[in-house]
Design a protein around this nucleic acid. Structure first.
Lengths: 148, 148
DNA sequence: TTTAATGTCTATAGAAATAGTAGAGTTACA
DNA sequence: TGTAACTCTACTATTTCTATAGACATTAAA
């Protein structure tokens, strides 16, 4: 399961992607629209800002904007900065590799092969799907896809 | 990330799959071979027994055995009983469905579609791979596979 | 120049999950 | 009948998750 925080982050970014381009969107606006606790959302957006995903304007008329076009922000990228490593095992993480100290060797580890395939499969989806894809699928998504 | 407990469970089952057929294998034996804390492993095996994955013999000369052939025990099945739902979102779980009360509707949820594809992809791997597959790949797995 | 609206940052806290440990009990073989 | 095994329940320490609180900094507009 992904965390609630990651879910909020993805929904907040979706909200930004659908907001008027160039116009900052306020935390309180996003919170209300997406039913996210406001103070929690503050932290999340701050994280995303520090990670270079969004930019902000302070003071009156302030708010948040996407830093890159929505079709350049992948789900994988967001999950990684919010929830940490995507890999199912520490020894399979590209960004936070850690040896399993209770297993004898990665070549002989019985379960590593299997989860390597899981990791590949999920990465394939997560890094090929962007915030733009998400907001482009309000309903009848499959149909839209097939027709495109 | 899967839990340590699930990792232990899968490794314990692998050990059983490789042990002499018909001969029960002791907890302490599995624990030593796989470097799993013994008391923790007791709990795990008990869980697996209650779930019908393994059977046990008590008393002297006791131990554990697989209840089914190793090639009928899937990774997905084990992960599910040990770690709970495999789905990345509660509203995508086949076995523990729960509505997301903070999202407006599943048809319009921006992120549900995406994670549905993630769930499909991981399920495809996890339910097509068995303990037998795991133990059959000690090294040079790719080569073996291609040759088979 | 003030004021009010906005984001920034750090600290705190309750609840749940994780990863074990402890110990008393039960069973069955030798 | 003893002892080597599994069984079961309870407990605990640590970490993570999901927030909440409040002081601070910045900016636009009055």
């Amino acid at each position: 399961m992904i965390t609630q925080k990651a879910k909020y982050a993805l929904r907040a970014l979706s909200a930004l992607a659908q907001s008027e381009a160039g116009e900052p969107m306020m935390i309180s606006e996003i919170a209300a629209q997406q039913k996210i606790p406001k103070k929690f959302l503050e932290q999340i957006l701050l994280d995303l800002k520090h990670q270079g995903i969004v930019i902000s304007r302070r003071g009156k008329q302030g708010g948040y904007l996407l830093r890159k076009p929505a079709n350049e922000i992948t789900f994988g990228e967001i999950l990684r900065v919010i929830d940490g490593p995507l890999a199912p095992l520490p020894c399979l993480s590209l960004t936070a590799y850690r040896r399993c100290d209770d297993c004898d060797g990665e070549q002989t580890c019985e379960i590593r092969h299997v989860f390597a395939r899981v990791a590949d499969a999920t990465r394939k989806v997560l890094f090929s799907t962007t915030i733009a894809d998400a907001v482009a699928q309000p309903e009848g998504a499959e149909v839209t896809r097939l027709m495109a």
